[in-house]
Simulated scan of single mutants.
Amino acid sequence: MKISLLGGGRWGVALSCHLGRLGHEILVYDRNESVVKLINEGIHPYIEGISLKNVRATHYLEDIEKYSNYVLIALPVQAIREIIGRLDLSKKKVISASKGLEIGTYKRVSQIIKEIHNSAQVFCLSGPSFASEVSKGLPTALVLAGEDHEQIRKIRDIFFSENFRIYLSTDIVGVELGGALKNVIAIACGISDGLGYGENARASLMTRGLTEMVRIGVKVGAKRETFYGLSGMGDLFLTASSTQSRNRTFGFMIGKGTPPQKAFEEIGQVVEGAYTVKAVKKLSDHLDVYAPISEAVYKIVVEGEDLKSVVKSLLLRPPKDEFETI
Rank of each mutant, 00 (worst) to 15 (best):
G7V: 00
R10A: 15
S16A: 15
S16V: 08
C17M: 11
G20R: 03
L27E: 06
D30R: 06
N32G: 10
S34E: 15
H44A: 08
P45G: 06
Y46C: 11
G49T: 03
L52W: 00
K53E: 15
R56L: 13
R56E: 11
L61A: 05
I64H: 06
K66F: 10
V71W: 07
L72F: 12
I73P: 08
L75T: 02
P76T: 11
V77R: 00
L87S: 02
S96E: 08
K99Y: 01
I113F: 05
S126A: 13
V134A: 08
V134F: 03
S135F: 12
K136V: 05
G146H: 06
D148L: 11
D148V: 07
K154R: 13
F159S: 01
N163P: 01
N163D: 12
R165G: 09
I166Y: 06
T170W: 13
V175D: 09
G179Y: 02
K182D: 00
I185S: 03
A188E: 07
G190N: 07
G198T: 05
G209Y: 06
G209C: 09
V214A: 12
A222N: 04
G234Q: 01
M253F: 13
I254V: 12
T258R: 07
V270C: 04
V271H: 09
Y290T: 14
A296R: 06
V297N: 02
E303Y: 07
R317D: 14
K320I: 08
E322R: 13
